[in-house]
Nucleic acid binder design. Structure first.
Lengths: 345, 345
DNA sequence: AGGCGGTGCTCAATCGTTTTAGCATAGCCC
DNA sequence: GGGCTATGCTAAAACGATTGAGCACCGCCT
């Protein structure tokens, strides 16, 4: 009997590895790696040869192994409060586009109002599932801040960040945003404004309330505030509360567009004319503002743009192109007038 | 001078590893792994000890290394045509929830109408970034099918799959769905229907056209079809084409909700009353159907449910709980009557 | 001829975890 | 006391790529 061949075909169930390519090409594994990555000095001839064998075998370098060795995963995480909200879809889309362009994949986490889900998400960084993270956390949490301080991996927060916590972030002057809405309504001759806010345990709601209070004070208006969830249903239900508590209201300043659109729906059902009887404004300028009826005047907070910038800051850090100091970007809001306040419909 | 300690503290910049824990606990790395994972025979005492040291060091097992060794990443990919479309957001949300529940992370890819982006996404499986994939591809592509056939990793397709390609999939009878809409309009006394379809090079458009043609034939209707993009803008523009080619139309059967809502907007601008002058129906039953005006009658294709089932099929396969034969699930559509066809508004 | 530098490739260590095989030690029974 | 089985731990080999060090070899110069 002949000797066993030293390297039997060894039909693997899985994919070809660099070792398989090396064997067939008659070179070492190192050469395969160097040839395909183009990182070392390898002759043109060998490169072509290895490449052709690799192609023939359908060889693709294993990302796990590569990641382990190079300590880089080429993945980032995006943590949003609720992917069902079009605002965060805009952010996700922008980030995904930016990441793809630079060779990164995006892991999406929607915390869906679950207590502590944002803190849990930081595990992705700890255990090395991802290289960095864009985090949108709307509920202030001491625990989250503490953990943020401990982690020494690139993170970019979209939203307010307590000073001293040296982390990159991009924020928007939403306080000023509410001011824009209020001023617009005053110009339109409204004077009995009600602010329909989101849950007060969230950052956006606090900042926006502050904006309303400042603007109301400046204008000498009575302070009228109602609170509900940041959802269509919230806005829908809030209308009834407004009518009970402030029957003479002639304008609703809603803390986001979902509330505004929900309110529009309820007002229509009640036969209240918008904008004739009551004007309505929203915040965020989601695409839905253009399809509801009447179209919703809103304050654009440029979510897509913020997502894009956050992604860029994060990716720059990952490629070491960023300065050591934590970066901060502030975006300015802008008013978009539509039918619900008497603009062109 | 005393000897150097055999194991200097060795301040790592990164995270603690199992070796660090082992050193401090005075046991071997194997024991650390076995103690923390609870897979081997380790005494209670040792387990407690190792656990406390690990906690103290903030040790978290590295996912890369673990994945490499165990050949499992605990990640799946979700590939959708456009995350900007609320239908796919519903799918994403359902899948993310299901995945999280079973300890998996979701990598999101939006192909955004880029040629070949779906085929590219399969690389995620090849290179081991993820264990499995849920794929929604709406543009039929020989290349995609060929690649799908080659890959021997769990995939679940949402949508039509050519027979013989033995891959798990969940589909919806959208042909029948269009039939439901047509029948509803006929019952409402409409007779001059126009089908506003999406791009004919997509699967959904073909299937829905077929549904319209069958229903029209059954009812003895003239075949009237217009085509546009599956977007708000598409529907908006399509109205003008309809009015030019079929001025007497009394109903628009739209191939998805975005088209329908876009059409509503244009009709309103033109002073055409809905549903009095023209009735409109959509398909998908996205949440926006309830906020536009009038509310849009639609055919629910249960996107969230399909996503949930796809995720379950995929995750079952990954945990080896699935039978060898490829699975197929079919979801039935259901009509949701609203204001745009004269239902309660 | 000897030395030197460059080229092209390989060796072997490394990343951090999991897991199999195996080695002590202790306890038990007769 | 001798054999036998559990028990509790460790050594070492994976997983698959990357990479710094190093080894042949060739050509060139003096």
């Amino acid at each position: 009997m002949a000797n066993e061949p030293p390297n039997p075909p060894q039909r693997r169930t899985g994919t070809a590895t660099a070792a398989d390519v090396a064997r067939l090409a008659g070179v070492s594994v190192s050469t395969v790696s160097l040839a395909l990555s183009g990182r070392g000095r390898v002759s043109e001839k060998t490169i072509r040869h290895v490449r052709s064998i690799a192609e023939q075998l359908g060889y693709v370098p294993n990302a796990q192994a590569s990641s382990l060795r190079r300590q880089v995963t080429h993945r980032i995480a995006l943590v949003v409060p609720d992917i069902g909200n079009p605002v965060y879809v805009a952010v996700a889309k922008a980030i995904q586009r930016e990441a793809k362009q630079r060779g990164y994949y995006v892991l999406l986490i929607s915390t869906d109002n679950v207590e502590g889900a944002d803190v849990d998400a930081l595990h992705l960084l700890r255990n090395g599932h991802v290289d960095g993270m864009v985090l949108i956390a709307i509920r202030p949490s001491g625990e989250l801040e503490r953990q943020l301080g401990r982690i020494h991996k690139p993170i970019c927060v979209i939203g307010k960040v307590p000073g001293g916590l040296g982390v990159d972030h991009v924020e928007v002057n939403s306080t000023r945003g509410v001011g824009l809405a209020v001023e617009h309504l005053l110009e339109q001759g409204r004077s009995r404004l009600v602010f329909v806010n989101g849950p007060l345990d969230t950052n956006p709601a606090r900042l926006r309330l502050q904006g309303y209070l400042e603007a109301a004070r400046r204008a000498g208006l009575e302070e009228r505030v109602v609170s509900c969830a940041f959802t269509l249903q919230g806005g829908y239900a809030a209308v009834d509360e407004v009518r009970a508590r402030f029957p003479d209201a002639d304008a609703l300043v809603c803390a986001n567009d979902l509330i505004g659109i929900g309110a529009l729906k309820r007002l229509r059902e009640l036969g209240v004319r918008v904008p004739e009887d009551v004007a309505v404004t929203g915040i965020d300028d989601i695409p839905e503002c253009q399809i509801c009826s009447p179209t919703l005047t809103s304050v654009a907070l440029h979510a897509g743009e913020r997502g894009r910038m956050a992604a860029q800051m994060l990716l720059n850090r990952l490629s070491g192109e960023a300065p050591a100091a934590p970066l901060r970007v502030v975006v300015e809001p802008s008013l978009v007038v539509r039918g619900s306040t008497g603009g062109r419909p």
